[in-house]
Design a protein around this nucleic acid. Structure first.
Lengths: 241, 241
DNA sequence: TGCAAGTTTGCACTGTGCGCAATTTTGAGC
DNA sequence: GCTCAAAATTGCGCACAGTGCAAACTTGCA
């Protein structure tokens, strides 16, 4: 969330410095960072949540405890970097969508672009492993929140500065909530099943959730349909923007 | 959020809440609990976030450090109990709404019922004091999340068991997001201003946010009456200014 | 090659969270 | 009133989180 070093294309540095400045030092740092993160994920897998310490992670990654804290402010942050990767990927997809498309459609497309095993697997794994742990679940919430903030920025620049902040916040928050809902329900239904069939379900949930949002959650009666066919795209009430 | 057995610290609502077991012991526990929570809030006020310890809270509340941990699992949890009180209050209002009303209307009404100084003041204060603190912000997120779960339950029992889980999760999440957005924007605009005029702004934001949600976030600059006949909910008064 | 800047590490210290057992308080029955 | 068991509080110890600091080490550039 905070310490995702890679995508901080904020104020001062140019975008091209980002793309073509893989100095030796930077590469080493990135490697260390990712080795710490994957060590944390390994331990989460093998030991389960709450059953390993920062010292364990550091040892597994081959660095000192102190170095761990140079990279991540907490154990949870190291794991959250996995979720951050997923979210950043989604944001990237979102920003690539054509500007004339509606926010909801862009969000739908961006989320669906991630419904492949390569992208969703680590996220789903985190999801399953953090279900019953307070600290870890909090980090996950923070990652979603961070993503919401990014969407607000992206939507603001797309819709123009004159747009109401309330509109931006409410829209971005709702989009993220629906994405989260789709993943949550998918996980409840399928568990950590990453088969193509299961991912199709996730994909459909994402479509449906955005559809519900675009329709203002209007007819609860419609929501009974598990009809996976009846959601071609974000509904019609808003395709004028 | 977890341990909200007797959610209200302030004096008045004990009468109707504690009908079942007002034993002496329970009352004492509740008193201790609330004295710890308010000690925490006092210290947050006077010292600022991150500048006091559990030991300080315990001392202020007149109990031992260990006793603090008997009541709250962490410093943040003690502060979060304030937010929990607010949320629980909102949930209570929500459940009191007539069953035939739409979820959005009920949510709007419930949130608006809390837009009075008595209810919103502690929440707003927390909001302002936790803005720049990781741990505390996380607790706040968790409180919202907990409230979402409650809404899901309430909505499920209102709409019937047959309703799709995706619908429930997406709806509840979006409602909470919009409430959160309204408060966030309000706070950005007005800071911790609790005047009647300021609260009217908050109230209007809550109305507007639910209106946007009910209208599927139709293009903002559009007057847009009657998106669909199926969405009679929440009068779309977003053209008020 | 040498040096300045950047990175890793050990050390020390404060604080968290919780298990455990001793101690005190409480409330109900006698 | 008194007694006693249940419940609450407390002190203590322990493992672990996080952070400042300075010493050691590595990297890149002149």
């Amino acid at each position: 969330m905070t310490q995702t070093s890679s995508q901080d294309a904020t104020a001062e540095s140019l975008t091209l410095a980002e793309t073509s400045a893989p100095s030796r030092r930077e590469l080493n740092k990135a490697a260390t960072r990712s080795s710490i993160a994957s060590a944390a994920l390994d331990l989460l897998r093998s030991n389960g949540p709450g059953n390993f310490t920062v010292e364990d992670i550091a040892a597994t990654a081959g660095v000192s405890r102190r170095t761990f804290f140079n990279y991540f402010p907490s154990l949870e942050a190291a794991l959250a970097s996995v979720a951050d990767g997923f979210m950043d990927h989604a944001l990237e997809q979102f920003r690539l969508r054509p500007a004339e498309e509606s926010i909801l459609e862009s969000a739908q497309a961006a989320l669906m672009a991630l419904a492949d095993p390569m992208s969703v697997a680590p996220m789903a794994e985190l999801f399953s492993l953090t279900q019953d742990n307070r600290q870890l679940a909090r980090s996950e919430l923070e990652a979603w929140e961070h993503c919401t903030a990014q969407i607000i920025d992206a939507a603001r620049s797309r819709l123009g500065e004159g747009i109401s902040e309330l509109y931006l916040h409410a829209l971005a928050g709702s989009v993220i909530s629906c994405g989260k809902a789709a993943m949550t329900v998918w996980f409840i239904e399928r568990g950590p099943d990453l088969s193509a069939e299961s991912l199709a379900v996730l994909r459909q949930h994402l479509i449906d959730a955005m559809g519900l949002l675009g329709a203002g959650f209007a007819p609860p009666s419609n929501a009974f349909s598990t009809a996976t066919t009846a959601s071609p795209s974000v509904p019609t009430t808003k395709d004028r923007f």
